[in-house]
Nucleic acid binder design. Sequence first.
DNA 1: TATTACCTATGTCTTTAAGGCATATCGAGC
DNA 2: GCTCGATATGCCTTAAAGACATAGGTAATA
Lengths: 301, 301
Amino acid sequence: MELRTLRYFIAVVETGSLSAASQVVRVSQPSLSRQLAALEKELGLGLFDRTPRGLIPTSAGRHFLAIATDLVQRADLGLRVMKSEAKKELLPLTVACPAATVTHVIAPFIAATGAPIADALIRDPADAYAAVRRGESDMAVSTLLPEPDTDSLLLYERPVFIQVLPQHPLAAEARVDVAATRGHRLILMGRRSAVRAATEAAFRRAGVQLDGFDEPESSSMAQALAATGRGACIVLDNPTFGLVSRPLTCNGEAVTSPLYGAWDPGHYARQEIHATMLNMRDWMQAGDPVSAAGPGNTAEI
Amino acid sequence: MELRTLRYFIAVVETGSLSAASQVVRVSQPSLSRQLAALEKELGLGLFDRTPRGLIPTSAGRHFLAIATDLVQRADLGLRVMKSEAKKELLPLTVACPAATVTHVIAPFIAATGAPIADALIRDPADAYAAVRRGESDMAVSTLLPEPDTDSLLLYERPVFIQVLPQHPLAAEARVDVAATRGHRLILMGRRSAVRAATEAAFRRAGVQLDGFDEPESSSMAQALAATGRGACIVLDNPTFGLVSRPLTCNGEAVTSPLYGAWDPGHYARQEIHATMLNMRDWMQAGDPVSAAGPGNTAEI
DNA sequence: TATTACCTATGTCTTTAAGGCATATCGAGC
DNA sequence: GCTCGATATGCCTTAAAGACATAGGTAATA
């Protein structure tokens, strides 16, 4: 069993046929046919059911797919790690996180510190950790609580902002208490987001009724922005361009939503990932451009 | 980079020379020389310093060794898992645990349930978890608290026994309270064992002074047995052949020491390992031959 | 029902990489 | 300077991967 064979196997599962896989791995179809047969013989079981329309993996084949992808993924990762070591530079890391986190956290962090983050994959908060698990990225940044079997870190307790058009009455205040939102229409983004949970908890704590945010528009940023034109307020952790952002407070305390970093404890470059995450945490806590911004600064955009 | 190459690389690191490694992997020395050179070229860095006395790995080489062994180990494990699946049987598991655990727990468990445990590696309690981490065994059973990044299970709270010769006055009691040991010489095995910790805690709780167990003989079972001839009492969780074992109690409650099971959460057969561990736990809790034994039964041997 | 259009499997040949043998080379120790 | 034990290299052999042509089989379709 060699890694090459495993790559062929994976390509066949993914494409569903030898002919199609042969295009992907740039090897002739007969060669694939023979090597798969040899692999099945070595393992002692059938990995595919052959049909005239292609190959469909058996249950053993699906099981082996998990093993094979794990191995190939680790091998590629190992190669990446060693090659970066050869160039005597830090391994260029990739991070999976929501789109707003890229623009508001990752990009400024890279700009400020030169951290070795080479690419960012846009993922839902709920899918960011899964991307790490699938090996698509080296680490994840998300608002959701990391799963217990990953290495993780609380990066920052990010303030939640009330975001309105400049002419909105709430824009006159430096900070907005939950009680002060009474009579205003609030829009919370996402059905199961951490910001929504933190906001709902704050309103519950303050004993203030909260309504009007399960509307359909709450899932679309464009519709939410349109609603601000009709006087609505968006509740979000990342300031929105064109709106004035005012920290939301509850009994004088800022309402916050956590931001976590997570990575695979079995990653060959876990030390470097851990170091990068610690840097990101320190950088955010020392002077997150968002939270440190005064009313006339970044938070105003 | 293929698995074959990685195996060669590992053999060279382990033997320290191409000539010696060529004996191990049954490939000629020149072939190894060439393949290692090709590997170094592919990675873009030197893995070894060549000396007239052999090859010594560079720091990059030592780093790559960790990656290579991890990959090869997982590949072998994957092959094992698939082959057991091919034979439609459970994967024959191996367990690392202390010697006494084999005779008193693992062996009776296999005999009673037919669990798929094919082999047991004798390891110190402190080294059992490390054996799993090194890939030497699929799971570990130990008295020590498992490390947080492994999957683990509390198997059983095992009673601690006072073990004496049949003619010893304490043998007349069905159970021995910590207070009743006053005036007797106690021997605790091991300097940092869980049984010692549990026993010391029980004596502290009862306010009874405990002494005489930091003697040199406490580390050797043979010397401890000899001491019983001079009236001493051994404190252990596993009954000892030739001695009478009486449960140790503290304020009426049995003094116990925990037994844990642990395994690698990334193991390809983690479900099967988990199931086996759950079976072991249920079996121990339903009727551990040691704890269930009356005074005239197993505990008497 | 015959045809067509896709598949996969197999026979045969080519190419490439691994492997083996002999030997050159090198450095430490005597 | 010589020997010994190591690695590296030239040259040949072998085995496996790969390519090409083609056989065989099934589903959709005329």
